[in-house]
Write a protein that binds this DNA or RNA. Structure first.
Length: 511
RNA sequence: GGUCCGUUCGUCUAGGGGUUAGGACACCAGAUUUUCAUUCUGGUAACACGGGUUCGAUUCCCGUACGGACUACCA
């Protein structure tokens, strides 16, 4: 079997879509598993759609999720350059080869003439107007024009394109690794433009030439390329490269969570989840789209989630490290049908990965949030907080978002709990508890508990009856980690002050 | 419209001619947690439809329906 060489080949027309990350991941997993080579090629042959910063964004995104590149833009390699705009002369040469062998031809038709042709055909009842074996005989190209005229036009600098002369009737077959045999009749394929009038190749030419030159073994790409795959087969054939043709694997699409259709940025915005790995600011509109990184997703969790959208190991194991994914991955186990994107599952993966971290690692997340807020906190305290909160967080920022009360007294109190649990009796116990705590030198979970029990026993009131009131007075919230641990962490001073504050602020409903 | 691709619980999916159609997420209920979350237990819930082939089809074949992709000098 030949050496595995795969490529991820995005075009720098904007931020990298999450579906693109999955495509990159599948390529990467195969490369790593087979000890092959992962190549990054930038397909920037459309000068009109070039977006500054997009290429760097792609590089940064791959780096963040941990997909490393062996060869390509940013790292170089034996087949450089890996940016298609820098390979113009190569494509020109191969396009010329097609002209010379009679499998390609020059076409001089203007956009208006093409439009006219399509209109005419449509009016004539043709479903799919094509520039093909029939229509090319009526257009202005090197097949219909005399050779001198063609030469004169080219020499005079008239704009032209080079088209592929697609055979009239021939069954074109390809064996897709995911879908099996796919066949299309050549009459359904039109004489695709290979070289544009600006001198740049189209995707079709550039992709085939580069995959051949770069010795790509597997082309793993989105399903949207399936319809043009037969055309690519025709191109390999035209070049005489059929025996070196890569194997194809067309991935099922990522679908929108509700309804139907390809997952779009619009859907993501509407449903409130990111579509890009990293935050992206559109240089034209200045619009900012929050990324997975900024939303608090861990790269390993995101990869695990993405891997399972369209692929599964055939076992019941769901949590896979990248190393395990590399081991388990196989193209054969990629599904055929599109997968709806369910952000809930992504959150679940994130939670699992977060929980698997040590208290020390988790404390770092909290410390980072605190730094942004300009709040100082000892490492020891942060570790303690992380420990009590780890079972209830989904994102790293939750430690701070849901644990603000560890650092300052509540600004407001949960109304539901107050209405239900804040009463004269509770206030009486709380005040007594406060006095009791004041006598202690330090408060820890055990002494807090003992004090509370002592007070409630003395007043002959069940501890459970006032626990919620105590919690709300201390944290403002109705739920949270073990209250005794919270008291240990905030300390005696805060306990006393917060109870006093709550008693002052909250009115007692007179029964 | 045409071409191509697809269709198992709400979602991701396993499975495969004879199964109680399995798992996970989500959801619901109970237990534990004197709260919330966690954890545990249990539950609701699927083979798009119609014809074949067959003793038997969710599984194989053909249609239909539905969905998607493509249909540019964009990738």
């Amino acid at each position: 079997m030949r050496e595995v060489r795969v490529r991820f080949a995005p075009s720098p027309t904007g931020a990298l879509h999450i579906g693109g990350v999955r495509t990159a991941l599948y390529n990467y997993l195969l490369a790593r598993q087979q000890k092959g080579t992962m190549i990054l090629r930038i397909e920037d042959t459309d000068q009109t759609r070039y977006v500054p910063g997009a290429e760097q964004y792609i590089l940064d995104s791959l780096k963040w999720v941990g997909i490393t590149i062996d060869e390509g833009v940013g790292v170089g390699g034996p087949h450089a350059p890996y940016r298609q705009s820098e390979r113009q002369s190569i494509y020109k040469q191969y396009a010329q080869q097609l002209i010379d062998s009679g499998q390609g031809y020059y076409a001089f038709d203007t956009a208006e003439e093409l439009e006219q042709m399509r209109e005419k055909l449509k009016a004539g009842g043709v479903d799919t107007p094509q520039y093909n074996s029939i229509t090319r005989t009526q257009m202005r190209n090197s097949l219909t024009l005399p050779a001198e005229e063609v030469k004169r036009l080219i020499d005079s600098g008239a704009p032209y394109v080079i088209r592929l002369k697609v055979p009239r009737k021939e069954e074109v077959r390809l064996n897709d690794l995911i879908r099996g045999w796919v066949s299309v009749h050549s009459s359904q394929i039109d004489d695709k433009v290979l070289m544009k009038s600006d001198g740049m190749p189209t995707y079709h030419l550039a992709n085939v030439v580069d995959d051949y030159l770069m010795k790509i073994s597997h082309v793993i790409r989105g399903e949207e390329w399936l319809p043009s795959a037969p055309l690519h087969v025709l191109l390999y054939r035209a070049f005489g490269w059929e025996n070196d043709m890569p194997q194809f694997a067309h991935l099922p699409l990522l679908l929108k969570p509700d309804g139907n259709g390809k997952l779009s940025k619009r859907d993501a915005d509407q449903l409130g989840f990111p579509i890009f790995p990293l935050t992206w600011k559109d240089p034209h509109t200045q619009e900012v789209a929050k990324g997975y990184r900024e939303a608090g997703y861990l790269p390993e969790a995101l990869l695990n989630f993405l891997a399972f959208l369209g692929w599964n190991p055939g076992t019941t194991q769901e949590l896979f490290s990248v190393e395990e994914l590399t081991q388990a991955f196989s193209i054969e186990r990629i599904g055929k049908a599109g997968a709806k994107f369910d952000i809930h599952k992504a959150q679940w993966f994130n939670q699992q990965y977060l929980r698997a971290k040590s208290d020390e690692e988790l404390a770092e997340f909290l410390l980072q949030s605190l730094q942004k807020e300009n709040i100082s906190c000892s490492k020891e305290k942060a570790v303690k907080i992380a420990a009590v909160m780890k079972e209830r967080v989904t994102f790293p920022q939750d430690f701070w978002e849901q644990g603000k009360y560890f650092f300052h007294a509540p600004a407001e109190y949960d109304q539901g709990v107050v209405a239900k649990k804040w009463n004269e009796e509770a206030v009486k116990v709380l005040l007594a508890f406060k006095d009791e705590v004041s006598t202690l030198s330090t408060v820890d979970a055990a002494t807090a508990k003992a004090s509370l029990e002592k007070v409630t026993a003395a007043l002959n009131i069940g501890t459970g009856k006032i626990l919620q009131a105590l919690r709300v007075s201390l944290t403002g919230a109705g739920g949270g980690p073990d209250l005794m641990m919270i008291m240990e962490i905030i300390g005696k001073q805060e306990i006393v002050q917060r109870i006093e504050g709550a008693v002052k602020t909250l009115k007692v409903k007179v029964a």
